[in-house]
Design a protein around this nucleic acid. Structure first.
Lengths: 202, 202, 202, 202
DNA sequence: GATGAATGAGTGTTCATTCAT
DNA sequence: CATGAATGAACACTCATTCAT
């Protein structure tokens, strides 16, 4: 029974079915038929809401990115402390949030990364995402460090966050959030300490 | 023109064609037909030397892992200095060696990671590889740090190396080896410094 | 030109194409492509209506069985005489009906039998069919003979019917229905006579 | 290590491997590779001793036929009684011999029959076999019955023997030799009795 | 808006056969 | 004699996509 105004509902329904499918069988075996079955709709509907399979994949990736982004934003808004350290902590916590370190999300991100190497449209999305983390980190470090040091610290912390996330994802075991955060905080504090040392000596 | 004793030659030929194919079109589109064409052999030969496509993929992954492993081993053997720092440097350099940070290798590793999430046999290989890096790092840190600190340092450095590698791979640009090494060396030295501080104070 | 409600039509279409293909080239060479071509549809449609080739084969076998069964049932319904002999004649005639002793049907039955030896699902169907003939015969003999004799008579007549059918099928020539029926009737009458003799002597 | 005079040995080796393969996986899946593996030889050797796969199949069928034929011949040679009834019993016993009613033999015969419908060379072999049974039976009935009755009796008994064999083969259970022989003997005796009746009345 | 029938190219895999060794 | 490397066509099956309803 067709209805009007179904577009946003259907789109979200299909995106979630896509995540579910990738989690269950991997991106390679996540066929249109499986996704449609998981969403409880017909095969044909997908090309109605998304141009084709690539469109659905890209939309799903954009959705995942927006969840991450909104997560960090939300955490920042309830932040009393405005110090760089507090902001950096929020970014770290957001990246190790439960919404990012569960099985489905980790599998989907990995699949997206691999796919993005050969699909310009996905690659663009992926670069935006990567740059956002670096940019957010750099922005905070910049408040207490000279440009070069801030950039280097941001690159290092971004890499450390992604690396901790990656190794956790690939391990197959449950993600050890506490351990990851401890290591990231330590790195953050070491980088922030450079400023203190300098200002102390000055 | 059939010959005897072709097995090792053909196997290597096919593994290299697989790397080439994954580099060109991605793992999803790296069909048997394409790999065979790139290798200059017939389709059927693949099941003659590898049981099936999965066998070829797994063999290719094992090959990539052995290249990385042998690279580090070779560097270690020409090492005059036996200090932990020298050994750690060798491991870092090995992971950022040209054989690991070029396009084909990076694309193939990413594809393997994504695939391994849904293939137990590949996942096992992948865990061995992950553990080897951690284990090698931990072994060196252990020489100068207490167990807990050594483990933490190894986890952090392993994550930093993988993260630097990953972000470099995903960037699409040429890998900035010097920058990555500088950041990794800094982290290594900070961790090693914990021991020196302690022994100094003692 | 897609339409709705095509399922029963397409299924019958494909079953008949399967019979045609087996008749023409044998079951071993009755490929999906050939069957689809004979049916005038695309290859892919077969997995849409039947799970796979085995599904199509099993459906075809069920169809052949139902034709035989309905044939006997139809003959029985126009039967004025309710005597065991009349019923047995109907069964014999049904098994030597033109629908069973033509080339395609005979080739297909033979192929099914051979295949059923290695496919549990087909074997089950085949046993049901075999048992039906025996059961129908036994039921009629039972009306005039003690259980043991009825069973023996049914086994013998079932074997004779199948044997006559088989030798006719394998001969390659046109089936001599009259001759086969004469031999089967004789056997039937001999078995039925056992009762008459007994009742006469009583 | 090649040897001379291997031909008969190798041929028999391969024929027996073929029977084994057909028993295990059916004729459809009895590949050259499987047969060669079961025989413990290389793939290529088959075309050396038999022209191609069809040659091997035909040779296997000829072998099976000769076993049946020699079985009956051997039983006849140890026969004291020269009566038609004794000879007919020998034929019946030979057809229900253990060499004919075991799984492998039954599966192979069925497969041959189905295949022979589409292969002239096998069909010729098969007709020779069918005719031999009829001819042997007819020859014995002819000694006591007029031609027409002998032919009819032979046709009936041949069909009954084949039918009993067939239904036993398809049942999947162990062959009930005693029951089959009892039914066949009864038919034989009824046909032979026609002569006695006539001669008695004469 | 939504369905599912239909397509046909493409996939991995199997296989009988050939032939240099 | 015998091997097994190599081929390439054929196979069943999958799939994204299209489109009449």
């Amino acid at each position: 029974m067709p209805k009007v105004g179904m577009q946003p509902i259907r789109r979200q329904q299909l995106i979630e079915a896509t995540l579910q499918a990738v989690d269950q069988v991997g991106m390679g075996d996540a066929s249109i038929a499986l996704i449609a079955r998981l969403a409880g709709v017909s095969n044909g509907i997908i090309s109605h809401y998304f141009q084709d399979k690539n469109g659905l994949i890209a939309a799903t990736m954009r959705y995942l990115m927006s969840v991450l982004s909104e997560n960090v934003t939300a955490r920042r808004q309830v932040l009393g402390d405005d110090s760089p350290r507090a902001h950096l902590q929020v970014i770290i916590e957001g990246n190790f949030d439960a919404s990012q370190v569960n099985g489905p999300a980790m599998k989907t991100w990995l699949a997206f990364w691999a796919t993005s190497m050969h699909q310009p449209s996905l690659h663009r999305l992926q670069r935006i995402n990567d740059h956002r983390l670096y940019s957010n980190l750099c922005c905070q470090f910049r408040r207490v460090l000279p440009l070069d040091q801030a950039r280097s610290a941001a690159r290092g912390l971004a890499a450390l966050i992604d690396g901790l996330w990656l190794r956790g994802a690939l391990s197959g075991d449950a993600f050890d959030t506490e351990q990851a955060q401890r290591i990231a905080y330590e790195y953050m504090d070491i980088q922030l300490a450079k400023q203190e040392c300098k200002s102390t000596s000055a």
